[in-house]
Amino acid sequence: MTYENTTTSRPLPRPAPPSPALPSSAGHALLVHAHPRPDSLTAQLAHRAYARLTADGFTVDVLDLHAEGFDPRMTPADEPDWADPDKEYSPEVRAHMRRVAAADTIVVVFPLWWFGPPAILKGWIDRVWNHGFAYGSARPRLRDKRMLWISLVSYTRDQFAGLDWEGPVTRTLRAGISNFCGIDDAAVHLVYDSLDAGEAAFTSAESGLEAFLAKAE
């Protein structure tokens, strides 16, 4: 289990996704935030990511899973049907699918809990990145997208490497989710020592986002 320190923050903006007919020169980004407290370090890093993306000319759809009340529980309506890739999922899930489909770039900011994504983020992947949409279709819908996972880890880099968790966590996110769903241009950036990093956490997250964005130029 990993935790993080608390900083003063305000709720993230929640603009509606712009019309696909009016793209910006940089593109359209979906910024996903998965922490229950708006005063968390995770929220602060999401704010910084939002500021950087908009400064670079992206239009940004902010998906704050907790603030929007996303239900991570799988239901029969959203359980994949392996025999039917055209299954029509629930209205809530179809709305989220449209937001994913509209984005050129996806950035996910979250704390690492029990060496994996929080339940609300895992449930979002389970329900939304579903069969026939993110995978299992003759029409690969996510192939041309780019994706960056920014995860906060309470361990120092040396501690995390010593526990041999860096590889499994990175592979799960990049290969097990992004690559599996056709997103080849995917990266994982881990922000270490989240309990005590202070300003270094912002520097780390911003450098990860900078490297990711520069790669596309």
Rank of each mutant, 00 (worst) to 15 (best):
D86N: 13
D193M: 01
L63P: 00
F58T: 02
A95T: 07
G176I: 05
A138G: 13
R99D: 05
I120T: 13
K87T: 07
W114L: 12
T7G: 00
T2Y: 10
H47A: 00
P140F: 11
L195Y: 06
D126I: 11
L30Q: 07
R127D: 03
P76S: 04
D64P: 00
L65C: 04
W82F: 14
K145G: 01
A43F: 00
Y155N: 12
H47E: 03
M97C: 06
P15S: 05
D86S: 08
L41D: 03
A197R: 12
D126N: 12
D56E: 14
D56N: 11
D193L: 00
R98V: 15
A95H: 13
G27V: 08
R127N: 09
Y192T: 00
P91Y: 06
S40G: 07
L195Q: 03
L112A: 15
W113L: 10
S25C: 07
A77P: 10
W165P: 09
S40M: 01
R171D: 15
K122M: 13
D81G: 01
W124Y: 12
A214C: 05
G167H: 14
A101S: 13
T156S: 10
P36R: 09
D56L: 15
P72V: 05
L213F: 14
D196R: 12
G167R: 15
R174Y: 02
R139M: 13
D158I: 08
A175Q: 03
A26E: 12
H131G: 00
G162T: 04
G176D: 02
G198D: 09
E92W: 08
A101P: 10
E88G: 12
F115G: 11
P18T: 09
D144Q: 11
R52W: 02
A200S: 06
A43R: 03
A187S: 13
G123F: 01
A51P: 03
V128K: 02
D61S: 14
H28I: 06
R141H: 09
N130A: 03
G176L: 08
R174G: 04
V32E: 03
L190I: 13
G208W: 07
R139S: 12
P20R: 04
H33D: 08
S19G: 09
A55Y: 04
V188W: 07
T54V: 15
E217Y: 13
H96C: 04
P140A: 12
G57P: 08
F70Q: 03
G136N: 01
I177N: 11
S19P: 04
V62P: 01
S40Y: 02
A205K: 13
P80G: 05
C181L: 00
P111R: 14
A138L: 13
A103E: 02
T2L: 08
V32F: 02
F110R: 05
A197W: 05
